[in-house]
């Protein structure tokens, strides 16, 4: 046995019971998940996509906020690993009838699920729920806080196309203030050694964001200059008409990604968007559907990354 290993015993593979955020993950944890996800990509590309890793396990997708794409991605991931997947959306749940989050958690816990995937409109709600249940919890997005599987799938997409993340310049552009995607991506990309820029109108820039270690730009053109990766964020409709930005027309002109602005990035720069896109608001259709776009590949990587996350958490389940 090598001496080093004797002094510090080998670190367990992904030593976390829940995935609540990128915060708290080590670079090794992240890389381990990405490596596992690579295998899941291969699995998903075969005709026989079914694995037995989660056979007999119950996965509940608890979505307090509607999200077709994330929910179906988690559902497919669970099913491909052999789990029994149940979807609970807020429209049909007792939450509508006034049940508190904690009561919901306690009720679900009594049904003995193995994994709960939670999406909630309030930051911190998933953490609160995780403290009340015995099973593994995956954060599928909590308010403007974190969306760890999105950051992981973005990282996987970047790594597969660029071969690395370290040293790349990534510009995250748009509504940083209200974006959980931005926060998780900032944490992950910095952890893996990328240079991260954030760009957007000051009205959509959270206070003190530069303290996270990112460079802040208010001029999209400057943020894009020599970037390797351009990540556009969705601008929610309710923020388009004068509250935070004057109009979609003005937003597109100054903060929307079109061919002309993209030309400022490196010639081999790649474009990403977590979806769903507002074409003609934050991104021009020509760019979204263009040769530099990775947007469709992101969706494929989403399933693979979620399979990897479920598999990694499953190892800590009782009788796992």
């Amino acid at each position: 046995m090598p001496l080093a290993a004797a002094i510090s015993p080998p670190r367990p593979f992904f030593p976390h019971r829940h995935l609540l955020g990128i915060e708290g993950l080590s670079p090794q944890d992240i890389v381990a998940l990405l490596d596992l996800a690579e295998e899941a990509v291969e699995v998903s590309r075969q005709i026989e996509k079914k694995r037995t890793t989660l056979r007999g396990r119950t996965q509940i997708n608890l979505f307090f906020e509607a999200s077709t794409r994330t929910q179906s991605s988690f559902e497919l991931a669970g099913k491909r690993l052999g789990a029994d997947v149940m979807n609970m959306s807020v429209a049909t749940s007792s939450v509508k009838k006034g049940e508190t989050l904690i009561d919901t958690a306690v009720t679900l816990n009594a049904m003995r699920p193995d994994i709960i995937v939670v999406r909630h409109a309030q930051a911190g709600a998933v953490h609160l729920l995780a403290r009340k249940v015995d099973c593994a919890v995956v954060n599928a997005g909590d308010g403007a806080h974190e969306h760890p599987t999105q950051a992981l799938l973005d990282a996987l997409t970047i790594r597969r196309n660029k071969g690395r993340i370290e040293g790349l310049t990534v510009a995250i552009c748009g509504d940083i203030m209200h974006s959980r995607v931005a926060r998780s991506n900032i944490l992950l990309l910095l952890a893996l050694g990328a240079r991260v820029r954030v760009a957007g109108p000051s009205t959509l820039m959270p206070a003190g964001i530069e303290r996270l270690g990112v460079e802040v730009f208010h001029d999209l053109r400057r943020a894009l200059t020599d970037a390797d990766i351009v990540m556009m964020l969705r601008l929610q409709r309710e923020r388009m008409n004068g509250g935070f930005v004057p109009s979609t027309k003005e937003y597109f002109r100054f903060h929307g990604l079109d061919e002309e602005k993209l030309a400022l990035a490196k010639p081999d720069a790649l474009v990403m968007h977590p979806g769903p896109m507002n074409r003609g608001v934050e991104i021009d259709s020509i760019v979204a559907d263009g040769a530099q776009s990775l947007i469709r590949e992101q969706v494929e990587m989403g399933v693979a990354v979620r399979m990897a996350v479920l598999e990694a958490l499953a190892q800590h389940l009782p009788n796992g």
């Binding site: 004068g242 509250g243 004057p246 027309k249 003005e250 002109r253």
Partner: peptide, 15 residues
């Protein structure tokens, strides 16, 4: 500064 001088929504300052 605000649309229609109504004091509610930001005007298109950039444009």
């Amino acid at each position: 500064l605000t649309k229609g001088l109504a004091g509610k929504e930001i005007a298109e300052i950039g444009l």
